[in-house]
């Protein structure tokens, strides 16, 4: 039973990290209509920047802040200078550019930081404790607290604030929103900046949680987060978060308890196939 709970909590933490990566993708797809594959590239860059700042200063909070800020700017730059000029072409053009850009960011990291696995060996500054026999490491606690804070912040932002209303209106119908005085370009910038900053945080969390930062670390999140936003209902941020948490738990429990002769990373795609057969619009995609 203890082992089961421990696995459950580990799985939830992994799901929370998936959610941090995926929700930016869902936000951007919902408002902009582009599958931003290079989002996982921003996540990798975020991990490297965090690693670099931490190695240079030893200040983890500064590493998170600098990385989130630079990645927000990177995300907006990708949107303004790559996607916006390509929006007049059919949707596969920005999609292919996005895939190319993702590969370019991987190679860029390899060139700058070398092809090695860097060890991001530090602990998140949160208490480690045991609760009725289940051990929470400081990193596990840290992932919970940071991811929880970000989810809460985003929930407030999107449901309660004028910024959130502008984002929602633009994602529902951009021409109508602009006729009501909402600056659509600013809303899209906001989505890219937010999504990219959160991806940077996710990159650093993964780096610390698994104690490694490497150029290919974005590959699996790139494919998995695509499957997750489809499962969650394209463009639905709540759906993306729910699907991510479910997948993190399912992966961990199935690998831990059921002797499934498949790699853990295959699960996301199997889940995607089954969910789409059962509900083609995804878990939270009831509205069209």
């Amino acid at each position: 039973m203890d082992l089961f709970l421990e696995q459950l909590f580990n799985g939830l933490a992994i799901g929370a990290i998936y959610a941090l990566i995926t929700l930016g993708l869902a936000l951007i797809y919902g408002i902009f209509g582009v599958l931003h594959v290079a989002h996982a590239g921003v996540y990798t860059i975020g991990a490297y920047i965090g690693y670099g700042v931490y190695a240079a200063t030893g200040n983890l909070a500064l590493a998170f802040a600098v990385s989130a800020l630079l990645c927000a700017l990177t995300g907006v730059a990708i949107e303004r200078f790559i996607y916006v000029p390509l929006m007049k072409y059919p949707p596969y053009v920005p999609l292919i550019s996005s895939i190319a850009l993702f590969m370019a960011t991987e190679e860029f990291c390899r060139l700058v930081a070398g092809p090695y696995v860097l060890s991001f060996s530090t602990n998140l500054p949160f208490p480690a404790f045991s609760f009725s026999g289940i051990r929470f490491s400081s990193n596990l606690t840290g992932v919970y607290v940071i991811a929880g804070a970000i989810f809460f912040f985003l929930w407030i932002l999107t449901t309660k604030t004028e910024t959130g209303l502008a984002l929602r209106a633009t994602s529902m119908d951009a021409p109508i929103a602009s006729s009501l005085g909402i600056n659509g370009a600013l809303a899209v910038d906001t989505a890219f900046a937010l999504g990219s900053a959160i991806a940077a945080v996710a990159g650093i969390l993964v780096g610390i949680y698994y104690n490694e930062v490497h150029p290919d670390m974005g590959a699996m999140p790139a494919y998995k987060s695509l499957a997750l936003i489809v499962v969650g209902g394209l463009g639905s941020v709540e759906g993306a978060v729910a699907a991510s948490l479910l997948l993190g738990v399912a992966e961990t429990l199935l690998i831990g308890f059921a002797a499934i002769p498949l790699p853990r990373d295959a699960l996301a795609f199997i889940a995607m196939i089954f969910v789409l057969m059962w509900r083609p619009t995804g878990l939270f995609g009831a509205r069209s």
Binding site: I156, L157, T161, E162, T163, G164, L165, A166, L180, I182
Partner: peptide, 15 residues
Amino acid sequence: GRSNYRGIHPLFRRW
């Protein structure tokens, strides 16, 4: 809300 959708300042204003 139109007058408030500009800039960063109203980022957290309730609607």
